[in-house]
Design a binder for these strands. Structure first.
Lengths: 224, 224
DNA sequence: ACTCTCTTGTGATTCATTTCACATATATTG
DNA sequence: CAATATATGTGAAATGAATCACAAGAGAGT
């Protein structure tokens, strides 16, 4: 991912770096609660099982936030990272598919905390349409495109069966949405200008399965 | 991750390779359903948005499964990958925390399909203990260690609040479990011999947020 | 049997990410 | 205020992963 810097030069920021920013943000929230004023790259690294050099390098892509000899100012750094991640604001999110996973996500408080506000729900099941989930009325999937557009939705979470995911993604894209989080275990096609991320919960279980089968006695595994 | 080969030499297999094996397995299941007898690395790559070379290299770590000029035999390759991943068998899984996420996971059919059988449920809420979810009675978390041991649980899924996750993980480890999938947004400490994977659903949303904020017009993003 | 086409398997190469190591800057202590 | 300790920021080096490119194997057609 390219990021425009102050100099106008586009730097390449890796996916891993961005994911680690999320971790730093999380650690800083705790540090703030513990009334830390500053934190060293060493301490930050320890808390998220990373190396100090990694922390410093990651942050250096976006600026110099620290003070030599002292460390990073906790509340300020947290704010800066939140701004980089774009989670210092509210995002209008729609959730498509109010099944098992979908229902869980509506009630998932972490999303709300991070500024991801689910404001629209969609389903194709007549029994669900019109019902109320956490104060949101479930809309008919038939009106997906217009309702998403009218509500100013910026991010869509897809929690539908794999078989229908592609059709729905197409509609979502037509509605002008440029960011989609997909929970269906299927590879979706989207235009280049649309960001698609997949959340594949079986994958991590399969990784564990692989680990158990292949390493009767564990040596070392990297945590991300 | 190290893997013992037939020669006794331990090869280093990257996390990405293992994740891609999951993708190949998924694609092969569909190809099987479509009655393909063989598939080329090119076709397999196309279906999961990867490159043919990547597919061949990944598979070559584990053996030569293909035929030059022809491709890979679909059902056999699927079986081989399933064996490598350890999903050609049933795993006894316990789920700790029957809240929003937990309830969704009990009903999540993909897990069952992959051989991950949730056979024990735990919670600390008196109203939930004793209740029935999909035919499984929720046990009191107080008995975690003994019940997990007695049931022969091999993998534990943690879907509890971040504040209590560390205590529970400690108990789970004491019970002899060596593979844990954690949904709480917190960095858990486990001994070296225990495999821990984290499923952080906010992270992918944050990635999308970052993408939207930093790339008003998208160029190219790699998919994994 | 020979040629042509297709596609694998893999060493070599390129590209990306992480780690190292140190100059540089700040805080603290006596 | 000098000396010491601490911790950042960052080029350089090392490591790791993805891609390239091609030799070699296998089938099909004549």
């Amino acid at each position: 991912m390219n990021v425009a810097s102050k100099t106008g030069i586009k730097k390449k920021i890796s996916e891993s770096t961005i994911h680690r920013l999320s971790l730093y943000c999380r650690a800083l929230t705790l540090l703030e609660r513990e009334n830390y004023e500053t934190v060293s790259s060493k301490e930050l690294a320890k808390r998220e099982k990373l190396t100090p050099a990694q922390v410093r390098k990651d942050l250096s892509f976006f600026g110099s936030f620290g003070t030599r000899g002292l460390g990073y100012p906790v509340p300020e750094l947290k704010q800066r990272i939140a701004a980089i991640l774009g989670i210092d604001r509210v995002w209008q999110v729609a959730l498509v598919g109010v099944g098992n996973i979908g229902s869980a996500l509506v009630s998932y408080k972490e999303f709300m905390k991070q500024g991801f506000h689910i404001v629209k729900l969609f389903d194709n099941d007549q029994r669900k349409i019109g019902s109320n989930h956490k104060g949101i009325i479930v809309s008919d999937i038939a009106n997906l495109e217009t309702e998403i557009r009218d509500a100013g939705i910026e991010i869509v979470v897809l929690a539908v069966p794999a078989t229908v995911a592609q059709y729905l993604v197409d509609d979502v894209v037509k509605a002008g949405v440029r960011a989609i989080l997909n929970f269906a275990p299927v590879n979706l096609r989207v235009p280049d200008e649309v960001y698609l991320r997949n959340e594949n919960m079986s994958m991590e279980l399969e990784y564990l399965s692989f680990a158990l089968v292949n390493n009767p006695a564990k040596k070392a595994v990297k945590h991300t």
